[in-house]
Amino acid sequence: MKNNNSAKTQSEKKRSLSGILLSSPYLVWSVIFIVAPLFFVVYYAFTDRNGNFTFDNISKLGDYTGIFIHSIWIGLISTVICLVIAYPMAYIMARSGARRQKTLMMLVMLPMWMNLLIRTYSWMTLLQDTGIINNLISAIGLPRIHMIDTSFAVVVGMVYNFFPYMILPIYSVMSKIDNNLVEAAQDLGCNKLNVFRKVLFPLSLPGVVSGITMVFVPSVSTFYIAGKLGGPSNLLIGDVVETQFKASNNYNLGSAISLVLMVLILICMAVMNKFADDDTNMIV
């Protein structure tokens, strides 16, 4: 009995050793690119310029409450708009023939092959007061609309840039739903609407949740898009962080803002996951 046990633990040890060896590249990678940066963010957030421990950075954040709220608000609106457009589109894509699916997929992915900066610049030329859209509008005799440097332009930029991250997870979950389940639901008395309500929608929720995550997180935290399209009055928290690091050279305040932003996003995601869980449970 004893022998057996020791033999077992030995082989277990061997296995775990080889496991560590195998995963070591990943471990090294994540230490360098995930753990270390996080550590520095936390370190800078709680120290002053001379490296002494302080809460000053955190307490200064009160000045930025407005921007925080504005960022989350813009993020929420962009996410909702993405979802409202992406969900029906993913549904249509998943239900159409293999050939059409491929074409639609290409169209969705196409913008992602261009650089984010270039895409944002193109929107600037589109939305400017003397831009392409306004030229078209005035050409047909309507008054020009002021669009650039408004929240509207920021939301347009966000939706355009992050839309693929919404539709892809939803589409991939939907296209994997077994058609037998649809038939089983019809068999048990569901009309088209009920098939959707009782089977397709609940089964597509995991895709919706990851789509929301993948759009909400970057739209709350990116810089650049708001800076270019929203103008000085529409700065988002990401742009503030950028300014702290680059222009003001204040790593400590920048880190503190980033840290709080991360915590806020985590809280938002946790709340949303909770909702999604409750939702599926409710249907269950």
């Binding site: 037998n180 389940l181 038939e183 089983a184 089977v199 609940p202 089964l203 249907i283 269950v284």
Partner: peptide, 11 residues
């Protein structure tokens, strides 16, 4: 119908 692959609702 009882389907060849059961088709129970996984959710």
């Amino acid at each position: 119908t009882i389907f060849q692959k059961y088709a129970l609702f996984p959710h």
